[in-house]
Amino acid sequence: MINFNGTLTENPQFTAYNRGMLYGDAVFETIRYTSGKLNFWEDHYFRLMASMRILRMEIPMHFTLENLEEELLKVIEVEGLKSKSASVRLTVTRNEGGKYLPEDNGVGFYAFANELKNPFFILSEESYEVELYKDHYVNADLISTLKTSNKIIHVTGSIYAKENGYANCLLLNTNKAVVEALNGNLFLVKGSVIKTPPLEDGCLRGIMRKQLIEILKKLENFTIEEASISPFELQKADELLVTNSIIGIQPITKYRKKTYANNVAKELLGKLNAQARLAK
């Protein structure tokens, strides 16, 4: 079932003039639902509102924190997932009309949910090899930090990874700095220092990125730095971690000839699960 502008339906009426389809003129959030609540919902909501403002979309009066939460819970309940865990995708598209220049800056939305097996973030011990994706580059600008529906670099990078037997790829920006993985933010562990690319490099303004930075700032045994990461640093790292709202933390096990541990990943995952239980 799809929640299409507040109506639950199996057949939402998208037309050929949908601006998300024509121009990628849409933003989205993917939210983990666990234990009867949307994890880090406030962070997702305010990121969505900020993205809409940056893209000059008109935010409807009924797009309040409470109302949108209620709309997402509707689709969770109708799918029979209320007592389970789920991944919820909320997409906001600009209204139809116009070409590159919109005729209407108003918006509509649709949302759907899929069941997740695990109620909490679980650390995978499986092999997870990555490689750099160098066919296309991320622009080091504000637009690249948003979750828009224009993700063609991530699509082609995912195809490249599958064709070459990699679990994931790391993306470079136009300055040849490593900015993120195909499906999440990147953290590099070297001794007691943990680095993650700054937003100025064009990485996604990730919700898990924000949570981990907050956690790390409170830990005395680690120093967190938001700083550019060069490809040469990858093979010198002790650990490489990918983060997103659904998996939590995914340790990278191999990049080229270098293999990595996952001790810091294990420590941080427990703290991330605790933070998810307490967050609104």
Rank of each mutant, 00 (worst) to 15 (best):
V155W: 06
I159T: 07
A274C: 09
R32D: 05
N39M: 08
E125K: 15
A261N: 14
L72I: 11
K84T: 04
Y128F: 15
V107K: 00
K84A: 11
L146M: 13
R19A: 02
I207F: 09
R94F: 11
V27Y: 06
I207K: 02
L123Q: 10
I76P: 01
F120W: 08
T64G: 10
P12Y: 07
V264S: 07
G191K: 06
T196Y: 01
A279M: 05
I213Q: 04
G206E: 09
A261T: 15
R205D: 12
D238M: 05
Y137Q: 13
D43Q: 15
S85W: 05
K271T: 03
N114H: 12
V130E: 09
G106F: 00
K147L: 08
P198T: 06
R32M: 09
K236C: 09
N95M: 12
P12D: 06
H62I: 13
I246A: 07
E42M: 01
L123C: 01
S51C: 10
Y260W: 07
H136A: 15
E42A: 14
E129G: 03
A16Y: 04
N262K: 14
C169V: 12
Y17G: 05
Y260L: 00
D135V: 04
Y128K: 05
H136F: 14
L81M: 07
G157K: 13
E214Q: 12
L171P: 06
E225K: 15
F14A: 02
P12L: 08
K151F: 02
K147E: 05
S192L: 08
L142F: 12
N175V: 03
P251S: 09
G184S: 13
D238Y: 08
A161R: 08
A177V: 01
K236V: 02
L146S: 10
G206K: 03
F112N: 10
L22W: 09
Q211V: 14
K82R: 10
Y17N: 15
T34P: 01
F222W: 10
